[in-house]
Design a protein around this nucleic acid. Sequence first.
DNA 1: TGTTTGACTTATTGATTTAATTGGTCAAAT
DNA 2: ATTTGACCAATTAAATCAATAAGTCAAACA
Lengths: 210, 210
Amino acid sequence: MVYITHSGENLSKINQILKVAQKRFGLYGLQKTTMQEIAFDLGISKASLYYYFPDKEHLFKAVVEMEQDVFIQLIDDTLKENYDPIDMLKKFVKIRLDYFKTFFNLSRLRLEEFKMVRPLLSDTLHQLRQKEAEIVELILLQGVERKKFSISNTRETAILFLELLRGLRGLIFQNKELMYVEQEEYDMLYTKLNLFTDIFIKGIMNYETK
Amino acid sequence: MVYITHSGENLSKINQILKVAQKRFGLYGLQKTTMQEIAFDLGISKASLYYYFPDKEHLFKAVVEMEQDVFIQLIDDTLKENYDPIDMLKKFVKIRLDYFKTFFNLSRLRLEEFKMVRPLLSDTLHQLRQKEAEIVELILLQGVERKKFSISNTRETAILFLELLRGLRGLIFQNKELMYVEQEEYDMLYTKLNLFTDIFIKGIMNYETK
DNA sequence: TGTTTGACTTATTGATTTAATTGGTCAAAT
DNA sequence: ATTTGACCAATTAAATCAATAAGTCAAACA
């Protein structure tokens, strides 16, 4: 994950840096956070920061990757407790929304900046998408196995499902300059997501062996 | 539609202006098109242009409204020939995509500019959304009447369906600076839209009285 | 050897000014 | 009713310069 591999003793230091950086980046975004500020928060010099991370972008990337790991871990843990594919899919939608709620509202990124950052996070975001697709496909496959779902191409369907979720969420930002979302908007989105998920589930249900 | 109501003789002149303006706006967008250029294309002076339209924004708005009228008319005409709700929904999706294909590829707007233009077109776009919602709801209602669909809230479902379409389309622009879309991307989107529409239709189907 | 730092250079950004372009007005002409 | 050249004000684009932040490095330290 991190650019330079460090010895055991300093892993906590890196985590320390990541935590502080996460807070700064979360509050002010990539552009409006300086390396000096992060160093100041840590009580070290800017030069020391560059000992652990080659540049600002790698540090930012490491923070985002850390956040994604937490998200994926949460999904994995929650789905372990569930066994009904339908419930799993619904749970997935909820956890996913909650994650993005905290993620986006912490980082009051301007949409313009998010565009700048995108190429940098391109592969990281791609990996997250892949991981999400795997999770959803797994759920769908379990549904097919138990004769609950009837899906010809589970991979394609999983990706479609995720893109529909993403698309629905994306509509919120269409009129905005800042990426800040009100609670009310999240509630509305959640209602829509549930309505959609119900229809989608019914749309992939197996009615033949009923 | 147009700001000033003119007498019969000059309606063609306004249409003439709209056509020329559409071409210019389509090629270069709102900002990079000057009133002088449009006037030059028409062979009249800039001041004459201001005789027909109070300002640049109203002219632009009139062009967009003209394009929307064409779209709605095409939808209405096509749906008149069809009577199966499922076919109608599929046709709607296709016509809608075709419309936006020509619309977006003509106007190579920068996404940044589109944001600037949005408030100006706010009510116009809202009207189009309303009209689209009416059309889709009508299709759904016909499906319910014929016991083909089972929908508790047709209005809500129609809006959801449209938002899912919009969201899916919106994903294309996420990585772009320019709003130009390759044919290949449209083909992929069309495949996804079809897959989605099939699942959605199955998701609102009535299986009880089968 | 692994870690830290102040002093330094270079690249970006922000503010400011100025010149050029463009949106919009109007009296006069047709 | 329609058209226009001349005009003004507002916006934009380019250029310049100052300030800030990114990133480097030799030396010090543990």
